[in-house]
Design a protein around this nucleic acid. Structure first.
Length: 212
DNA sequence: CTCCCGATAT
DNA sequence: ATATCAGGAG
């Protein structure tokens, strides 16, 4: 698989310091921000987290708050009722079961309500520098399929496929480069194949019958 | 496979 | 008015 090295090297040069675009000052803040970012742009989340984290500084602050007040602070993001409920419940769990510390393992993180592998991988990699898996969001999913890195559609299967072929020292940076690549070039609609640095090795180049 | 469910661009 | 954005739970 020589193509993989081309992809990795090209994206590395294109996006040298790829990381989450969510603003956070602690693992707890990143966990909350990542939960809020589900089906919502990072920009939208960043708009509300400043005020949110000024009011709620610790898991206890969320745990003791009225659900309605949390909702009030986050109601400009999608699915705010579910997210408010998850954040409150998860904060209670962190206070009672995890001694106020954010768990730093996949196993424990995905037990928290509203947290599955994507959210857990973001927190593990961006807050703890740990690579238990690879972040697979909608961009990683789409771009991985287009580039032929996987044939699967299920995010968990895609993650396993990527873990088999991507060197472990790239597990943290690679998906965030893929995300930037997906947002800027390999967009869902009208991907910019013409100016794509990977078009020569892309199996989907002529299959994306878009008007570019 | 359905439900959750707002902001912004067009 | 409608498309686009872009995860998790039951």
């Amino acid at each position: 698989m020589e193509k993989l090295k081309i992809i990795i090297n090209t994206l590395e040069k294109l996006f040298p310091d790829a990381k989450t675009s969510l603003k956070f000052k602690s693992s707890f803040q990143l966990l909350i921000a990542t939960i809020l970012s589900a089906q919502t742009t990072d920009e939208m989340v960043n708009k509300i987290t400043e005020k949110l984290f000024k009011r709620f500084k610790t898991p206890s602050d969320f745990a003791s708050a009225k659900l309605e007040e949390i909702e009030k602070y986050i109601k400009s993001v999608n699915f705010y009722r579910n997210k408010a409920r998850n954040i409150k419940k998860l904060s209670e769990m962190i206070v009672k079961e995890y001694d106020n510390k954010i768990p730093d393992s996949m196993e424990k993180l995905i037990k928290l309500p509203g947290v599955a592998r994507k959210t857990a991988n973001v927190v593990l990699s961006q807050a703890f520098g740990k690579a238990e898996g690879i972040v697979v969001d909608t961009h990683v999913k789409r771009v991985s399929n287009r580039l032929g890195l996987t044939k699967n559609n299920d995010p968990e299967k895609i993650e396993k496929d990527l873990m088999k072929i991507v060197p472990k020292e790239k597990w943290i940076s690679f998906p965030f480069r893929l995300i930037l690549f997906g947002r800027n070039i390999c967009k869902a609609k009208n991907p910019n194949c013409k100016n794509c640095p990977l078009n020569s090795i892309c199996p989907s180049k002529n299959k994306l019958n878009e008007n570019n």
